[in-house]
Design a protein around this nucleic acid. Structure first.
Length: 103
DNA sequence: GGACTGACCAACC
DNA sequence: AGGTTGGCCAGTC
């Protein structure tokens, strides 16, 4: 069957996340907007929840730089630190410096 | 089979 | 200045 991909939205989410260079992060809303769904950021979060293997979902954080993900939040933060992502003393990612501009 | 929730963000008041 | 609602859509009960 289908080789028909699931809603392009999900596929795009995985693609974008996979295109994020090491040491950079993206926000849910940023991806949602890039896909033409400025208010479907929840869908992005849902794509993360299914957690496909091989996807650096840890690079996906909130627009505020806060890191979430159920009980994996701290785990994600640790991975990001290992990748070289600077963290603020607030426990948040420095979006100002690591926000992936798509470039 | 239907209804609710949910790793959120942005706009509105 | 802050708080609340709206909106997308599929996975879960």
């Amino acid at each position: 069957m289908d080789g028909k991909p699931v809603n392009p939205f999900y596929a795009q989410v995985y693609e974008i996340v996979g295109q994020v260079p090491r040491g950079k992060v993206v926000s849910y809303g940023q991806i949602a907007r890039a896909l033409g769904r400025p208010r479907s950021s929840r869908e992005v979060g849902r794509a993360m929840r299914i957690c496909p293997e091989g996807l650096p979902w840890q690079r996906v954080v909130m627009a505020d730089g806060s890191v979430t993900g159920g009980g994996y939040a701290e785990l994600r933060r640790m991975f990001l630190e290992e990748e070289g992502v600077p963290f603020l003393p607030d426990g948040r990612v420095d979006m100002s410096a690591c926000r992936w501009d798509g470039c």
